[in-house]
Amino acid sequence: SNGDTSPPDSDIEHLSENICKSHLETCQYLREELQPSNWQTVLQTDLDTYQKKSQEDMWQLCAIKVTEAVQYVVEFAKRIDGFMELCQNDQIVLLKAGSLEVVFVRMCRAYNSQNNTVYFDSKFAGPEVFKALGCDDLISSVFEFAKSLNSLQLTEDEIGLFSAYVLMSADRCWLQEKTRVEKLQQKIKLALQHLLQKDQRDEGILTKLVCKVSTVRMLCRRHMEKLSAFRALYPEMVHTRFPPLYKELFGS
């Protein structure tokens, strides 16, 4: 009646609770499990083993790990109110474009800032572990991103809402019901804003987070470029030994 078209606070509160719960239920690793004290960092002997792997074997290992992480993101998406009501084309478009972005966002939980390592293959691994991939620049950008997001010390709820915001991007190509996605993303943004206010975070943190979206998109574009280059070198390898879901998501 007062001309205000924004959704009621109870709607936003409900969506916020739903997304935070979905995040916790689908996080792959609990935060307590990711305490660096629970796991050793990669030892010199392990490091040698990783570095001596052929480029193909290391790519395959990472493709498997990425695919595992992505499956949890699919579950996360499915539990977000409104996602399953989108048409199936749009569900697929959002997941193809955004699932790896969410994996990179979630990585900040698994990042140890004391020694610049990230939880990988049951250990904490530094960038040197990924040398055999032949993508030093991409790996160093991924670690930079994890470091910078980790330094914001986000709570689980904040990470959950930010992940949902990243996933429900209305500007993806090939969306059929752009307006529905736009409305959902707007509600998620409001929920995130409310939470940040409630948590008494610095003003400007929302802007900082929104800026991170372009960085994470750049990382995913570079992943696609590296994959294309790798596939040009070893076409059979990708075809026969990479997980089918990885090929569906990143194959074209």
């Binding site: 239920e25 689908t26 792959q28 595992e68 499956q71 949890y72 699919v74 579950e75 499915k78 399953m84 199936q88 569900q91 697929i92 997941l95 193809k96 089918p244 879901l245 569906e248 998501l249 074209s252």
Partner: peptide
Amino acid sequence: KEKHKILHRLLQNSSSPVDL
């Protein structure tokens, strides 16, 4: 649909992360 058959399956499944 054929092109994204695994994604379709994952979206239709009522699986939980425990089943993954």
